[in-house]
Each structure stands twice: as structure tokens, then as C-alpha cells.
């Protein structure tokens, strides 16, 4: 847990922002729960209306988020100290770039390719791109020869795509997405 993005104990600031988001969320939950149909026309007991429990949960989350906000304010978390410099330092930090790359490649596969392109092809592309991107772009000091890296990545992608597709389609009888 020691490798947080924010090293200067930015937790009160983060808590302040999450508290506000949660407060907005809980207010919305409460509003939609109250506005939910009570199904009177079906003659049901109003105490068993569908909105009762979500409303209660909305209220509880609201109270918790208020506590979070108050605590963050007491600890000085309302001073957000946003500046261009801290923003650009954040964007260019290698950790953030690695996170963005991981999420982007995974999302492109899960939301962009799967279901649109043939599953085996999509999986092949995903594995190959993921391995190559990290081994050639980020972890350069470990790189031995680019050619063998490429070959190994392609081989891995072929094996993974082939085996996973075959196992799910023929052994588990899942119709692939």
C-alpha cells in the first residue's frame, strides 16, 4: 500500500472530493427512492414499497459521506491546491502512464474488440499488443533483442488465443462472444 500516487499525504484532499461525490450520489439515490412508484394501484402495503430499503441505504451513505467530508475539512482537505505544474507532473509520471496504458489496452479489448471482431482474433491482438507494448516501450532495460521479444509475444498470443477459444468453445460449450 506504500506506493500511492500522492506521496504528500493527499488523503484528506482525496477524502474531501470522494465525500462530495458520495454525497451527490446518496442524494440522487434518496431522490429516486422517494420518487419510486409505491404501487398503490396494486394494493400493496406501503411499508413494503420498493423504495424503502434503497432510500434507507441512500440516507446511511449520505450520513457517512457527511462524516467523511467533515473529517476531511478538519484535516485541511478542502484546500485542493490544484495547479498546472502538479497536473503535468501527475500526467507525466511513469506510474500514471503505465496505469493509463494498462487500462486503455484492456478497455480497447473488452469494450472495443470483443463482440465486434472474431473472439480468437481479438484475443490474439490483445495479448500481442499488451506484451509488446510493455516489453518494448516501458521495460526497455530488460530488453534483450527486439526480434526475439516480438517472436515470443506473437507465439504467446497465438497459444493463448487458440487454447482459450478452443477450451471454452469445445470443452465448456460456451458460444464465444
Amino acid at each position: 500500500m506504500g506506493d500511492k500516487l500522492d506521496q504528500d499525504n493527499g488523503m484528506p484532499r482525496a477524502d474531501f472530493v470522494t465525500g462530495l461525490v458520495l454525497l451527490g450520489f446518496s442524494t440522487a439515490v434518496l431522490y429516486f427512492s422517494i420518487a419510486m412508484p409505491r404501487l398503490e394501484h396494486r394494493g400493496i402495503n406501503p411499508l413494503s414499497a420498493p423504495g424503502v430499503v434503497p432510500g434507507l441505504l441512500g440516507a446511511i451513505i449520505g450520513v457517512c459521506s457527511l462524516a467523511l467530508i467533515i473529517r476531511a475539512v478538519v484535516r485541511g482537505g478542502y484546500r485542493l491546491r490544484l495547479s498546472k505544474r502538479s497536473f503535468s507532473a501527475f500526467v507525466t509520471s511513469p506510474v500514471v502512464r503505465r496505469i493509463v496504458a494498462t487500462v486503455a489496452i484492456c478497455l480497447a479489448y473488452a469494450w472495443g474488440l470483443v463482440g465486434r471482431v472474431n473472439y480468437t482474433l481479438a484475443t490474439f491482438l490483445f495479448v500481442a499488443v499488451f506484451v509488446l507494448f510493455f516489453e518494448l516501450v516501458f521495460d526497455q532495460e530488460k530488453r534483450r533483442s527486439p526480434r526475439s521479444t516480438v517472436w515470443k509475444a506473437v507465439l504467446e498470443a497465438v497459444l493463448v488465443a487458440g487454447i482459450v477459444s478452443a477450451v471454452f468453445q469445445y470443452l465448456f460449450l460456451v458460444s464465444l462472444p
Binding site: T102, A110, F126, V127, F130, V160
Partner: peptide, 9 residues
């Protein structure tokens, strides 16, 4: 870098 794409698949 080789293991995680398999896990995500």
C-alpha cells in the same frame, strides 16, 4: 507483462 494479459483474457 506476459502473465497479466492472460489473466485479463
Amino acid at each position: 507483462s506476459k502473465l497479466m494479459p492472460i489473466v485479463f483474457t
